[in-house]
Design a protein around this nucleic acid. Sequence first.
DNA 1: TAACTAACGTACCAGTTCGTACATTAGAAA
DNA 2: TTTCTAATGTACGAACTGGTACGTTAGTTA
Lengths: 211, 211
Amino acid sequence: MTAETGERRRDAERTRTELLDVATEEFAERGYSGARVDEIAARTRTTKRMIYYYFGGKEQLYLGVLERAYAEIRAAERTADVDHLDPVAAVRRLAEVTFDHHEAHPAFIKLVGVENAQQAKHMNHVARLVDLNSSAVDLLAGVLARGVGDGLFRDDVDALDVHMMISSFCFFRVANRHTWGALFDRDLLDPARREHYRTMLGDLITGYLRK
Amino acid sequence: MTAETGERRRDAERTRTELLDVATEEFAERGYSGARVDEIAARTRTTKRMIYYYFGGKEQLYLGVLERAYAEIRAAERTADVDHLDPVAAVRRLAEVTFDHHEAHPAFIKLVGVENAQQAKHMNHVARLVDLNSSAVDLLAGVLARGVGDGLFRDDVDALDVHMMISSFCFFRVANRHTWGALFDRDLLDPARREHYRTMLGDLITGYLRK
DNA sequence: TAACTAACGTACCAGTTCGTACATTAGAAA
DNA sequence: TTTCTAATGTACGAACTGGTACGTTAGTTA
């Protein structure tokens, strides 16, 4: 209701957002139990009290972080426009969107890791998330159907499986960057190798689909 | 030096091993900061005091867990015998060994996740690990060279990259089981789908390599 | 301008958690 | 049997950490 002056001393929305921003970093970086409520508060311009005022507690704050992170991705994934591309190029494009997205949101990737570490028990409490991710798969399913219809793709593939192949590659590259670097002395996120991996992913997926 | 009677009330080696066993589970399940020293001790037949007696502290115990976990894998990876197979079958076999291994060692996968969550900072302190994993890649490199020599494989591929493709798929399936299940209602480790995924991985990799 | 409420800050508590001081015992060695 | 030490157990403390009671202030509304 109030105008965005940018100079107000009291701004509920801004306080909430700032809390979520910092909490996202903290939870992604240190995990759920590793993150400290005091530390999160200290890195904002407000106090710990506000976490309890706006969210109720550490767990609800984490839930808020998770929900917002997935919501942002939903928006990003809608941007892929592949209807005008031939099936092979379209699959490649979809893979690249996922590739770019993973690279651009390391904090999100880490949150996924954190969630899996705790058997996704928090995610189950955010019912809204379930129908959220299906749109990406639906898009892919459409492209695959076109490819099969054109006789370009093998006809025994499941869209969710293909989505999994794409996700694995993109996820691994970001999530396991550090152990990979330590074990093989290769930085998977080295900008110099970015195009190489992006192309590789496209080759990998289209190579699998092709008849 | 002393014989393994199995009934001794005091057995340094057994106490140490038991501590490592339980700690592996705890660290894998709850992460480094989530794991509780008291809880680890309680789940053994000894006391917390022994953690400090044998390892020095929580961090060194974690280091011990990490080192042993990787050492076990080294042994497992040596078992692949692919010299008598043609290059295509050999690549498929190597991928399957990795596939099986990931599935059989979820705790190890989780530890890798835990390590990445903390920028692999502990792993760097275990210098012994670095040269450890290279054997798997060397094996793969040999097979790839054979395939290129036979004119079966494209000649612009790097063994470490192929190892990464294989690892991503296998890792993702185990590591992201829970979020995937929550979001898409599909259990990636469902035994009924196991062969399907195992074959899929082989198709994926050989499809990419084929000229 | 007085009253009212949403937004915010301070100080503190209670439970937890890593770590340690100190006492004790099993079994080997003399 | 006595001595000695590696191995083990008990009890406790200091720091940390999530959460809360209570007081204060900005800005709105009558």
